[in-house]
């Protein structure tokens, strides 16, 4: 009887079984994690807002509220705020803001608007120039927090250029006729966006800005000098 050592490390069967095990367990863990994440990123509804519950992906009815992006004391990073915020950066869920002249969109109306906006975003291929949540093309600005961009605010240039008096209206005007308001040599093409689609897109952008992205993009819109720099 031979007493020679056996080499498991050079045995194909050992590696084959290990490969099968590793793949299987990693896949099962991913599925487990996916179930956990799914529960956390399901879209909220007005009841959550009424109950002052923070959702990672809030209800489309956030379009009725004033929203912001504040450093949160507990999280240690910037978090979107809905309906105003306290000193710690937590949402108050109270202060409203008119969206195309109204701040009483029902759940159904708001859901339909965001859905229309998402359909438009896909139908017009926004993501092959812009990034959304940081994913997409790099030919145009990131849209994750576009709603909060100072360019569309009172002190920004876009309301004056488009002859409008609110963020929502300025964005909708630009989206319908981007060629009329060139911001840069790199102009946005005319994508034949209708007034209805533009309203949906703006609702979609506003709701996207309230998604808790773990502090991305960091310091968005916080540097005053950068906000209204000349853009050619």
């Amino acid at each position: 009887m031979s007493k020679r050592k056996v080499s498991v490390w050079t045995d194909n069967r050992f590696w084959q079984r290990s490969a099968a095990w590793v793949t299987g367990v990693a896949a099962v863990l991913l599925i487990w994690l996916t179930f956990d994440t799914m529960g956390q990123i399901r879209m909220g509804n007005q009841k959550d807002i009424n109950a002052h519950i923070d959702k990672r992906v809030p209800s489309p009815t956030v379009i009725n509220y004033k929203i912001g992006y504040k450093m949160n004391a507990k999280r240690g990073l910037e978090v979107p705020t809905i309906g105003g915020s306290d000193a710690n950066g937590n949402s108050l869920f109270t202060i409203k803001q008119k969206f195309f002249g109204r701040d009483n969109y029902t759940q159904k109306e708001a859901d339909a608007l965001v859905n229309l906006g998402k359909l438009a975003e896909q139908s017009k291929n926004c993501m092959d120039c812009h990034t959304l949540l940081g994913n997409g093309g790099y030919y145009a600005p990131d849209l994750t927090k576009a709603w909060l961009d100072p360019a569309w605010g009172k002190n920004g240039p876009m309301q004056a250029i488009t002859g409008t008096h609110s963020r929502a209206e300025a964005m909708a005007a630009f989206l319908q006729h981007p060629g009329r308001y060139p911001m840069h040599a790199r102009r946005m093409p005319n994508l034949h966006i209708t007034a209805r689609e533009a309203k949906g897109l703006v609702a979609f952008l506003k709701q996207m800005a309230t998604i808790d992205t773990n502090g991305f993009p960091r310091g968005f819109g916080k540097i005053k000098e950068a906000n209204y720099a000349e853009t050619k």
């Binding site: 576009a146 790199r186 310091g219 853009t231």
Partner: peptide, 9 residues
């Protein structure tokens, strides 16, 4: 510059 529209350009 904090990632805004104008920061991008």
């Amino acid at each position: 510059l904090g990632g805004t529209w104008s920061a991008y350009f």
